[in-house]
Design a binder for these strands. Sequence first.
DNA 1: ATGAAATTGCAAGTTACTTGCAATAAGAAA
DNA 2: TTTCTTATTGCAAGTAACTTGCAATTTCAT
Lengths: 145, 145
Amino acid sequence: MNLNVLLNKLKANGYKTTEQRKVILQVLVSNDQNLISVETILSKSKEMNPKTNMSTVYRNLEILEKLDLLYKVIAENGMTLYKLACSDKHHHHLICKGCGKTEVIDFCPLKSLIQLSKEKNFNLTEHKLELYGYCKDCEYNKKQP
Amino acid sequence: MNLNVLLNKLKANGYKTTEQRKVILQVLVSNDQNLISVETILSKSKEMNPKTNMSTVYRNLEILEKLDLLYKVIAENGMTLYKLACSDKHHHHLICKGCGKTEVIDFCPLKSLIQLSKEKNFNLTEHKLELYGYCKDCEYNKKQP
DNA sequence: ATGAAATTGCAAGTTACTTGCAATAAGAAA
DNA sequence: TTTCTTATTGCAAGTAACTTGCAATTTCAT
């Protein structure tokens, strides 16, 4: 995903192209293989445009998230990490606990995933699988409000 | 997992049995099928012992986590939800987005999980699979510091 | 009963993020 | 190109969810 594609998607949704926005997007584009923190996004943005403000970063991340252009992970310490979303196709990630580097994995069944991470020389230490949805009771209550 | 088992595990690790601790554990024990927030733990604890304090709740949760007696999920809004850990055996959960009720699932491959949630009348809407570990580079750096 | 060590409550502090508002910038329309 | 509406920004103050320091209290082995 490059800068202009992103700016066009934003424009198509009524958002304007500003210097600060361009810089923030540029930072995300050039780190599109790694999960990075807001702190990092801010400091790298400031390198390119010193007047970039924290609120602006948060507000732009919020917009990107709303447009499904952002992938977000909440770390164990409660800190939020971001990267640009890569594609609409369903996929998962290998996430390096050392550097935050991510690798896309195109399919789902766990057995094959474990095999795949071996092939990629990724030392898989933990995994977290959370299934969300509605239980029988809540589903019933949704339909009978 | 009942109250006395928990208190004994704590005792075995040098932690004392206090009124507040008992109450907090009791709240967790009686909600062991649901993920609950700290706010809920605190208010339910206060019902049983009005002088229970927020710091005390946090400090006790910290201890339980350190002893691997607690299962913790960080929700999308950044709030942390807890329940007692159920067993040492590797397993996953179905988590209801409505009420936080959890159901244990004993095996792993995703296909069977989807089948299983159907059998349980759980309307699976999303899932999140995150694989953590170390990439080739970080693994190398760990070995050559 | 005594005393060392753990625990607690309180209040103040911290961190990560949010919000209100006035000033500024973007870009469509005139 | 100027005008004008609307989005965007920076700032500073606010909030939510924890965390911490410390003195007072409680537990429990002796």
